[in-house]
């Protein structure tokens, strides 16, 4: 997902009375708010998870942003620009939520730029044709929604509220992607070829977005007890495949998995696992676009330093001038 493989901070000792009371509040469905007491592990895990999610939003601007200047019509240009702009907004909401936990946005940027903080593996894949813009909206946003909808009920108030706003705004993202795919799948031979190729390249990376199976992971168990993770990775992945395969069929496109088959008994599709070695390599920095993506973020940040400093300096001067004229008026 946008936050893949977030390490939680489980403890092996018995919970203190404070921790027990905290867990009881979560079990009762109460929201935890900033400045309320929380276990340090809860705080750290949240900072890591929300941070990863935020980084994914702003790094996620880049693969799609790659096609804004080549969008094929004025309307498509406006739609794509609005969508990628939304992602900047979602990053902003999430950074703000993390900031309530005692970390600044600049500190989180530093962690991203130094490689210490991660972002979703999916954004390290290239966008090669216009159909990729369709595939990203349809598959990548579709996979993200699977995770984000339940997160609206997460236990940390600011995070839950950010997710509510994000889900509301994202409702058009997946649809615009599918709409592009419909046009392409029903278009010329060249367009159909692009559409199929995009599905071929984005199918398995989309399945990787949910992260490796975590049914035995201690981190996941702790995060689920804290309600900062709502479903297991496998549950969400299965749900995604079940919903997406009929959509691909409707387009007349072929999911690139020879072992894909409906399983009557479980009421869902059987499907092949993605190549997890590839996944770990991408996380390590060896995906096709890791360098470009991180490089673009670092450049934007460094090139923008004088702009941010200029505005700060003006604000300080203006405040001094105001204070001086107030004194003079007395």
């Amino acid at each position: 997902m946008y936050a893949q493989m977030v390490k939680s901070e489980p403890t092996d000792r018995d919970p203190t009375p404070e921790e027990q009371a905290f867990q009881a509040r979560i079990d009762a469905g109460e929201k935890i708010e900033p400045k309320e007491w929380m276990p340090e592990g809860y705080r750290k895990t949240l900072v890591r998870q929300i941070g990863q999610h935020a980084h994914s939003e702003i790094v996620g601007q880049l693969p799609e942003g790659n096609w804004i200047t080549r969008a094929p019509t004025l309307e498509r240009k406006a739609i794509l620009l609005a969508k990628v702009q939304d992602e900047a907004g979602h990053g902003l909401y999430l950074y703000s939520a993390a900031e309530t936990l005692g970390i600044s946005r600049d500190e989180m940027f530093e962690q991203l730029h130094s490689g210490k903080a991660k972002y979703s593996s999916i954004f390290n894949y290239p966008t090669l044709t216009w159909a990729d813009i369709g595939a990203i909206g349809w598959l990548v946003d579709g996979a993200a929604i699977m995770n984000q909808v339940p997160l609206q009920r997460t236990s940390y108030g600011p995070y839950a509220r950010a997710m509510v706003r994000i889900c509301k705004e994202e409702s058009f993202h997946q649809r615009q992607g599918y709409h592009i795919m419909m046009k392409m799948a029903r278009g010329t031979d060249a367009q159909r070829e692009m559409a199929q190729d995009a599905l071929n390249r984005f199918w398995f990376p989309s399945l990787m977005m949910f992260g490796p199976s975590d049914k035995d992971s201690v981190h996941s168990k702790q995060s689920m007890a804290w309600k900062i993770k709502i479903n297991t990775n496998d549950e969400l992945r299965q749900r995604f495949v079940n919903e997406t395969v009929p959509q691909a069929e409707f387009l007349g496109l072929t999911v690139p998995d020879p072992d894909l088959a409906w399983n009557e008994e479980k009421g869902g599709y059987d499907f092949s696992e993605p190549d997890w070695d590839e996944f770990y390599e991408v996380l390590k920095g060896n995906g096709p676009c890791n360098r470009e993506r991180l490089g673009a973020r670092v450049t934007a940040w460094e090139d923008g330093a004088w702009f941010r400093e200029g505005l700060t300096a003006y604000a300080e001067k203006a405040a001094t001038r105001r204070a001086a004229s107030a004194t003079a008026a007395e």
Binding site: I58, G65, K77, T299, F307
Partner: peptide, 10 residues
């Protein structure tokens, strides 16, 4: 639109 994703602050 070329600035999208590359601005000096979100």
């Amino acid at each position: 639109s070329e600035w999208c994703g590359h601005g000096p602050a979100l």
